Amino acid sequence: MTAAMERPEFAPTVVSMRDHGAEQVSERLLKSAAQLSRNAMTEIDWSLPMDPTKYGCSPEWSSLYGTDYWDELTEEQRIALTRHEFASIMNIGIWFEMILQELVLVDQYNGDYHSAEFQFALVEIADECRHSLMFAKASEKMVGTSYHPHPRIAKAGKYFKTIARNEIAYAGILVAEEILDVFQRGCMRDERVLPFIRTVNEIHVLEESRHMKYAREQVRDSMREAGPARRGYSALVIAAGAYLIVSSLVQPKAYADAGLNVHRAMAARSTNTHYHAMIRSGCVHLMEFLDEVGLLTKPALRFYRRAHMI
């Protein structure tokens, strides 16, 4: 396994919280947030010029790395490609973080204001607002172009918001954050990557580790009362959502903006076994968790295989 595929943890936030219950988990996460939260708007000097030799992400995480097309590119083209790819990923992250915020708000709409669970939900929403602003600022600086999901995918996201409750909402959150998390962990300590992008990755990984712990506990609590029919339905909706997210990360426009032939780039990505293996390796822990809580059914597996997540 390459270094880019490893998942190093931030020691201060790695605490075993399994089966402690959402309230106790939230209490610990509130303390962690108070001690470790960061702000990219003040921590990063956005006025510094970019080193033209630095990538937007580790080359190994490019969707074209390992293909004949990648081999034909000049170093300058590879750098431009990774910058536009990661800008696309950050912009799609903004899109889903906006969905996430709405799901959490709806879930806690009539919650117990004095509970740790309710209060951490507000912390999570505040974190996501800062993350979206951070991603917007970073992508603007790096490429000056914004990316959005295909209109059909955006419409599907609106529909997802109307049906996503309980385990569907929190497992959907977990799937999206896990996918972005493993990508960023693979790039955040790579000195070939732009320094401010490494800091963006570090901040997001640190704070999303809390969000993912919270989401896992919410899913566990919700699944304790789920019967076979509900479990099957939820598993299928979550898997379909995961497929849409993974397939949307790098938009075709990113290839065009990097000066590549879009059709050739999309064809190369679709058959890129290296890229598929990177995604699959990064989703191992996610698949184990979904299996643990009964959300890795046979129909759901079809979507995960199509997305190369398993």
Rank of each mutant, 00 (worst) to 15 (best):
R189E: 15
Q184L: 12
M188S: 06
S132A: 12
A164K: 06
A171H: 05
A169K: 09
A136L: 07
A156D: 12
H204S: 02
H150W: 10
D181C: 07
S146H: 14
D181I: 05
K161D: 09
V193K: 03
K141A: 12
L194N: 04
E202K: 13
E207Y: 04
P151K: 13
A164N: 06
M142T: 14
E191V: 08
C187I: 08
T162W: 14
H204F: 07
E191D: 14
R152T: 13
K155C: 03
R130V: 01
M142C: 07
T199P: 00
A156V: 00
A136T: 07
E177W: 10
F183N: 11
E177Y: 11
E202I: 08
S139M: 02
P195W: 06
K158H: 13
Q184H: 08
A171F: 06
G172F: 05
A154Q: 09
I153C: 07
F160R: 11
I197F: 06
S146D: 10
E140H: 11
I163G: 00
M142W: 01
H131W: 02
H148K: 13
L180W: 01
A169H: 06
A154H: 05
H204T: 03
D190W: 06
K155D: 13
N166M: 06
R185F: 05
G186F: 01
C129H: 11
E177M: 07
C187L: 04
F135I: 05
K155M: 14
A176F: 11
I203G: 02
A164F: 05
E177T: 09
M134E: 09
F196A: 02
M142G: 03
E178W: 11
E191K: 12
T145V: 15
V193A: 08
I179R: 04
A156M: 12
A164S: 15
E177P: 00
R152E: 15
C129Y: 05
K158Y: 13
Y170E: 00
E202W: 12
K137S: 11
I168G: 04
H150I: 01
L133F: 07
A169Q: 09
F183K: 08
A154W: 04
V143M: 03
S139V: 02
L174I: 01
I197A: 13
E178Q: 13
